[in-house]
Write a protein that binds this DNA or RNA. Structure first.
Length: 153
DNA sequence: GCCAACGTTGGC
DNA sequence: GCCAACGTTGGC
């Protein structure tokens, strides 16, 4: 089983939006980055777990745990000219962009902030979210990193 | 295939 | 709002 970190801007979609759909899956649409698409297509599997991370906000950090509930499948927003994630170059016969479904497993008891993760740099120095300039909206992390971060809760 | 320009991300 | 970092685009 793989572990992941999903970034989301809470002003657009927050942990509480995810919590509203308790028991139901939410499709993670809008990925328009090839590396992230390939993660979803080639590596991610139903049953994998992910941290839910708030970015571009007052207190960036990890706020919850999600489980992946589907394989990668076509993200139809790419074909919708009125959608912000419309991609005119993607053809229905060979869709360029995929998405997966995720479901909230639980909110963390408290937010594990970006500042706090940085304080544990010695143990988490390979964590992609901490690396300068990292912009991927979904990143993998090791089981060791996962367990260590959960231990901070 | 190179690389400058551009758009986006995200912490601050 | 600023700006550094990075992916993508497009001219050559």
């Amino acid at each position: 089983m793989q572990h992941w970190l999903f970034k989301s801007e809470p002003a657009t979609f927050s942990i509480d939006d995810l919590a509203t759909a308790t028991g139901k899956s939410t499709c993670w649409d809008g990925v328009r980055n090839y590396q992230v698409r390939n993660f979803m297509r080639d590596v991610m599997q139903p049953g994998d777990l992910g941290f839910f991370y708030h970015s571009s906000c007052a207190v960036p950090g990890i706020t919850g745990i999600v489980s992946i509930t589907s394989n990668a499948y076509t993200d139809n927003t790419q074909f919708d000219p009125g959608h912000v994630h419309y991609d005119a170059d993607s053809k229905p016969e060979s869709p360029r962009w995929l998405m997966v479904d995720v479901k909230l497993k639980r909110k963390l008891k408290r937010i594990i902030t970006l500042d706090e993760l940085r304080e544990h740099h010695h143990r988490l120095k390979e964590l992609l979210i901490l690396k300068r300039g990292n912009r991927l909206s979904v990143t993998p992390l090791s089981s060791d990193e996962w367990n260590y971060i959960l231990g901070l809760e």
